[in-house]
């Protein structure tokens, strides 16, 4: 499942740490609560394993995705389980709502904004570490089955095998805990550029 040597793992963990750190700061402001982060879990995996890691192809998730623009091309996607999405929305609204409730436009744009913050944080940590210029496009969002959502970026980049960077971060505040998954896929040429720049 994971084909990484120690150096590669170090780099990827560093991306998770720096990106997660930036995200943590932004989330603290947004949720007006001190947010801390557990050590992120970073791995390279194939499409099927990624889908399993987030609860299987039929599990409903909330996902925010951006194209990566700049010196490299690809997609970066932030996904969380509906439980986490509901916790987040409840927190932002300041009330407890049933997990059955359908999100309104304001809720959806809040989820999108949080996804955007996380995506930007991880991408900027990647930029810092590699020195490769990259930024996210305007975020797009979807709430649906994991298999249906996640297959899209994998297909576009013809990447189903061992080439999906996954960062799982757990953010915790006094009364809130959010588990977020970042999926990053670069096209073939871009992967070569990244590896070269990192000396891998």
């Amino acid at each position: 499942m994971e084909k990484m040597d120690a150096t590669e793992l170090n780099y990827l963990t560093e991306i998770g740490n720096i990106g997660g750190g930036n995200a943590m700061t932004s989330l603290s402001v947004l949720l007006s609560s001190k947010i801390s982060m557990k050590m992120p879990k970073v791995s390279l995996m194939d499409f099927d394993d990624f889908v399993e890691s987030i609860g299987g192809a039929e599990n409903v998730i909330a996902a925010v995705m951006s194209n990566i623009i700049g010196e490299i091309k690809g997609f970066i996607l932030f996904a969380m389980n509906m439980e986490d999405a509901h916790r987040l929305v409840n927190r932002l609204r300041g009330i407890e709502l049933s997990t059955e409730i359908i999100f309104n436009d304001l809720d959806l744009s809040a989820i999108k904004e949080i996804g955007n913050i996380l995506i930007s944080s991880y991408l900027s940590s990647m930029e810092t570490l590699t020195g490769i210029h990259m930024r996210p496009s305007n975020p797009m969002m979807s709430i649906d089955m994991a298999g249906a959502i996640l297959s899209f970026p994998a297909i576009i980049n013809s990447r189903e095998h061992d080439d999906i960077l996954r960062i799982e971060s757990q953010f915790e505040g006094e009364d809130i805990s959010i588990n977020g998954h970042i999926m990053m896929i670069a096209d073939e040429e871009s992967s070569v550029i990244i590896r070269k720049r990192l000396g891998l």
Binding site: A57, E58, M145, A146, G147, A148, S151, F152
Partner: peptide, 22 residues
Amino acid sequence: MAEFEICVRPQMITTIGLGSCV
């Protein structure tokens, strides 16, 4: 995903989570 299966009644056949896939 990225496969086909043949099946004969009384079996049934299913595929999960079609998005942009067909």
